[in-house]
Amino acid sequence: MFPIRDHNPSERVPYVTYALIVLNVGVYLIGLVLYQTDQALNQLYFDYAMIPLLLSQGENYSSLVTSIFLHAGIMHLAGNMLFLWIFGDNLEDKMGHVPFLAFYLLCGVGASLAQFATEPLSPVPTVGASGAIAGVMGGYLLLFPKARVDVFLFFVVFFRIFPIPAWIMLGLWFALQLFNGFNTDVSGGGVAYWAHAGGFVIGAIAALPLWLRLGGTAFWERTDGHPDHPEARYGRSSVPRVRRR
């Protein structure tokens, strides 16, 4: 089960969201061209990924930022960019372009530090934008808890797209990160669950001043928990139905 779109795309062009997607994709493509051997790839991760052991030794603090723009594979990149595209635009619309960029980087650094705190002596590199995007999701949940999100559900031969409130989808996602974080060996899971959970909490906290400035619960009452502009209308497929004789 994963989201494919929300029902409230922003009315203003989300330049920063688009730029972050382009930057992440560009860095990944450059990596494919310039780092084609295992040795070169290991050097890339050593220089730019967040390696807890190096941080514990007082080295490579810049990796808290650079690691946000590295990805371990095409599906890792695609999943992260999908979530950023769905949830980033409305948050950028409310925050403004520059504050949203600062918010994104803050969540990414905070998520990396949350992962570092769980395994400060680990030599395993951590890469990916998911911690920063988790922060975007936490901020989205605070501001727009009832926004409708279309979710694609696939189970063996059954699949369906249906809308659910953001608080259900994001709440389940956050609960899953906590569950996996507590039940997965931090050194062997392959996924930085605590970076996800930490980024989500940091994003919700960092968005709190904006929520209060907008009116807090009065903002929810005024907008019914949705972005304060009309929903997009997604019609049914225009492909005609053909009856069998």
Rank of each mutant, 00 (worst) to 15 (best):
F2H: 04
P3I: 01
R5N: 05
P9D: 03
Y18H: 01
Y18P: 00
I21R: 00
V22M: 12
V22S: 02
V22F: 07
N24G: 13
V27G: 09
Y28T: 03
L29D: 00
G31C: 02
D38M: 08
Q39V: 00
Q43V: 05
P52Q: 14
L53T: 12
G58F: 01
E59C: 02
V65L: 12
F69N: 06
G73D: 11
G73M: 04
I74G: 07
I74A: 08
L84D: 01
G88W: 04
K94H: 15
G96Y: 01
G96M: 03
L101E: 01
Y104H: 14
G108M: 11
G108A: 08
Q115M: 07
E119R: 13
S122D: 08
A132G: 14
G135T: 05
V136M: 03
V136N: 03
M137V: 07
G139K: 14
Y140Q: 10
L141G: 10
K146D: 06
F152W: 06
F154G: 08
F154Y: 09
F154H: 14
F162E: 02
F162R: 09
L170G: 12
L172Q: 03
L176I: 08
Q177W: 11
N183L: 07
S187E: 15
G189I: 05
A192H: 01
R213L: 09
L214G: 04
T217C: 12
W220Y: 12
P230L: 14
G235E: 03
R236S: 15
S238N: 15
V239S: 02
R241K: 15
R241M: 02
R243H: 12
